[in-house]
Amino acid sequence: MKSIPAIIGAALLVTAGIVAPLLATEIPQGARRSGYSFTAPETQAIQNDDTANPGMLSVLDGASLWKDKAGALSKACADCHHDAGVSMRGVAARYPAFDQALGRPVNLEQRINLCRVRNQQATPLAYESHELLALTAFVAEQSRGVAIETGADPQLEPFITKGRDLFMHRQGQLNLGCTNCHDDNWDKHLAGSAITQGQPTGYPLYRLEWQSLGSLERRLRSCMAGVRAQPYDYGAPELVELELYLMSRARGMPIETPAVRP
């Protein structure tokens, strides 16, 4: 933290006017870059090699949970969805998606829990629990390389708008919006780390800082805490709307789950 790059990073941000830009600019499609491209070659190498990527351990755990019978109906995910390589291919690239019964978007974790409740008559798994992360990583990994198309459903439109507003909105004691860092300053550094465009392409992902897998919501909560705002609770509609906006903002980018980030 007290290293030279950190100090330079802070100085850059100040000179870049991060404290007071007035109008946020969205990143054009052609300029969209995954967080992967900002990380060091050593970190990329961990993501490139499945045997080296600890996120793959969770995918393995998810594959075995997929076959475990659970709940009052004693059904496994596999009993209904069979081969995940077929049934789940491309699913993560469409999430968050609109749930008719709830009348609002749900993220992939919530969708899996809906299946537990509705189709297995089991209790929902806790957010960030090893089981939920493992199942989510397993399901999302089936979409590796699939281009994100979240937001195509017109019922999602008002929620994307809300998510976009949240992304632009300044908050916290530092009075910064997501856009101030991830649209306006993604080529800069902060405390030694690249700011990046804040793309959601790799979740759940293995973060070296966490030394474990974590969800996109966990990452967003870290960013909110970082500007000293009170983070939304896991599963809060606002977080899902932010996820939805981020995913629609990333349309066309390939899913990388389980990615690796510093």
Binding site: T51, M56, L60, D61, S64, A134
Partner: peptide, 8 residues
């Protein structure tokens, strides 16, 4: 839950 990945 302990899992291992081996590449041989």
């Amino acid at each position: 839950m302990a899992s291992a990945l081996i590449n041989v």
